[in-house]
Design a protein around this nucleic acid. Sequence first.
DNA 1: CGGATAGGCTTTTTT
DNA 2: AGCCTATCCG
Length: 577
Amino acid sequence: MYHKDPLKDLNPGQVEAVTSKGTHLMVKAGPGTGKTRVLTARILYLINRGVDPHQILAVTFTSKAAQEIRKRLEAAGVKVLPQVGTFHSWAFRIISLKKGISPFVIDEHEQRFLFREAVRESQVETEPRGLFERLLLLKQQTERGFDGDNKDLELLWICYHNLLKKYRLMDYEDLIINATGYLEKDPNPLPKHVLVDEFQDVSPIQFQLVRVLAAKALITAIGDPYQAIYGFRGADPRFIHRFAMEFDPVKSVTLSDAYRCPQKVLDAAASLFDGMTPLRSKEKKEGEILYKSFETSEKEASWIAVQIDKMIGGISFESMNRHSSGDFDEMALSDICILYRTKAQAAALTKALVRHGIPFHTPVNHRKVETNAISMLHHLVGFMVGNVKKYHLARLGIQEESATVLASFLDLVQQGKISVGEFLKTFSEILGLDLSDEELERLKGPVNMLKEGVPPALAFKEEQDSLDFDVEAVSLMTFHGSKGLEFPVVFLTGIEKDILPWKGGDAEEERRLFYVGLTRSAQKVFVTACRKRRLYGKWMMTGPSSFVRSIEPHVSKDVAKPPKRKTPLKKKQKSLF
DNA sequence: CGGATAGGCTTTTTT
DNA sequence: AGCCTATCCG
């Protein structure tokens, strides 16, 4: 049992990371090197050495990751759990503790309302187009108030913050900023050990919070600079370096034994970066990377559906006619994942999967109706508390009367007078939402969390990004969404010019995004591209991404080359349909 | 004031 | 294709 011996089955590098004492610690952990394992083992190690669990704080990137760690600790026999959560959930608790009252947290949608109100009030003359996005980004990057040079933006910044104050609301950044402020003044409930996961995705305001924590605590930072993919929302991978500079002395440990990807995949992944040494694979599986290109995005999608059908042993008509088996290992649907750069690309793929009768699932935030229902629920709760006003509701198509009625129903739920299911039925009827039973079922989660006192913004948000992996289905998601996950078979789709290094994106961040995608695979990778793609309602000419060229030496030869001469390859391609 | 309609733009996403 | 926004007309 881990609790007895957290070091059991760890490799030397991992042991070094887990047992490091007396200084801050930076653990550089590439894909599949046992990052989560080290994190939990280190917590266990600290507890075993007599550290009070309450003095330990583990910060994760998502609440799902926090749950996973809590689960592992419990499984290891830990009775008193340490504090485990995201920066935001911990900050929320600190603020609640310090103020004696929980703040109402608004999401981006509501932030936009307030911003519009600010625009109206401040009578800014220039076109506010894109200003909101700039404010959002600026707020994650600035540690103390406004520090831009745009006069209009400054005015809107002030106006926006006055409105937040007026309605007693906080946005997500406020949680971090305010908690930092409170702790600077009075570092009372500061823990002695802080572990921060996914350090490459830390934003400036979060780094500032880490600074404050470091005044009292030893910090363990775990991250991988090659997997930094959230620069677009303020994260800065240079903090990995800054950490070592500022928090001197820092012990640094690099984990280079990887347990997920086959060597071939790791070699291909490393070839994306100049001078990168590949991780050492401890996985004996051979591994394979296949590349195939198509005329259109629709053909790409159908081909993928056919491949999946073959892999799962074939239930459809086409595969019944197939005599040879053993082209592929038998796979379960849940072993397969399809990745794409933008959600807009999912349409062609899901269409093909439906046509082939292959079950699949996508994250909730890809589904319009449900996202909308969640947002309505959230607003309803805000309305009950008095934070959400009539015009906020109107914007979502909710009449004030409906909201009043529903609020009283929700009250009955809280008192246990009616069930969550009954409430949701009424809710969708009154608001005229066309929700399936399945969708209604999924909405129960956040309402139940609400009953248990989870802050609304967190309760509703959590549901939005959960993908239920117990379902036997192929997983579809964006490259971003795949971070931290692994699948035996991964399809990397649309690896095309202007799509994977996204046109206008940060080229290096796009490269890391492809790296993340590649390294999700525990066995087999399919890389696909097409010449013409239907996107946003019109055709665009694409062609293979430069990344395809980078990994080419590691791609299996038989299908590796994009068709050069039409005849022979066309024939081969046809036989697959 | 509100409904209809034409025009413009479209990443990625956690909390 | 679909959503948000601006504008125009009753």
